[in-house]
Simulated scan of single mutants.
Amino acid sequence: MGPEYDLPLPEEIPVHIALPTILAEVAVLSRLERESEGRIKICTTAAEVRHCFDAGTLAVVLHLEGAEAIDDEFCNLEVLFRAGLRSVGLVWSRPSRFGHGVPFRFPGSPDTGPGLTPLGRELVRECNRLNIVVDVSHLNEAGFWDVAKITDAPLVATHSNCHALSRHTRNLTDRQLAAIAESGGIVGVNFATAFIRADGQMREDTDLDDLLRHFDHLIEHVGIDGVGFGTDFDGAKIPAEIGNAAGLCQLRAAMRQHGYDEETMVKLCHGNWFRVLEATLKG
């Protein structure tokens, strides 16, 4: 990959194609829960997530990355909510009926075009009504500010990093970070190397110190209560020292060596997510 890039994106997926795929995936998850003999649970409240954590059970919060399976009347949203949906990313990086995603471009600003459509703004209100988390990761900057104006819940970026450290369009500006802090929200640190590195390259030989600089910057600009893990293991190049979920122990060791004390570690690893889920998943 060259020093500058702008990756092509696929077209929006129509509802009639997206919905059967999502339903099939929810069915697979439901089967896994049923056959796990209590080792996996689909959680719909923060209390359930906490209980799973204490019991050593894998807690799953059902999330859509891109709302293309949701119809214009939000009937599908109601059905998916009943099936356990509790978090929605309004868009993936491609434009949709709901708004404009931010492309995979380096170097670049997240200010890449128009924000939410009228339908997208209504979707935010519906998610607020149902106490569904609204995820601003993958939204462009105009869409982010549209959500900030509408939502009555904490701003959540489930997997995003700092534009001040890596000038990738997917990363958040300090002004956006300040808005997340003001809302009592959270940023989950993304492990994808393209969003970590100052050169925007997708390289597995990325040093964990580069990732820790994003933690430091987020703690400075969002606050110690507003930063967590965002990972992004599915489909991204991750630093080789982490590799997959089993490598989180390596990251935790690097965080301790970096100087994070145990109270800070608890907040970053899970405590801050508990706080935000308790403020959002009120059902």
Rank of each mutant, 00 (worst) to 15 (best):
E4Y: 12
I17C: 02
V26P: 01
L29R: 05
R34S: 14
S36C: 08
E37K: 11
A47Q: 15
V49P: 00
R50E: 13
H51E: 15
F53T: 00
A55K: 12
L62R: 12
R82I: 02
G89P: 00
G89L: 06
R94Q: 06
P95L: 05
R97G: 06
H100T: 15
H100W: 14
F104C: 11
S109F: 04
L123G: 00
N128I: 05
N131V: 02
S137Q: 04
S137K: 04
S137M: 07
S137V: 04
H138I: 05
F144K: 02
F144W: 08
W145F: 15
V147A: 11
D152A: 13
P154G: 11
P154A: 09
T158Q: 06
T158I: 10
T158N: 09
N161Q: 09
A164I: 02
R167D: 02
H168P: 01
T169S: 15
N171A: 14
L172W: 07
A178V: 09
S183V: 13
S183H: 11
S183M: 11
N190Q: 06
T193N: 05
I196Y: 00
A198K: 12
R203G: 14
L208Y: 05
I219H: 08
I224D: 11
G230D: 05
D232Y: 09
G235S: 09
N244E: 14
C249G: 08
C249T: 15
Q250G: 07
G259L: 05
Y260L: 12
Y260F: 15
E263Y: 06
V276Y: 01
A279G: 04
T280Y: 01
G283R: 15
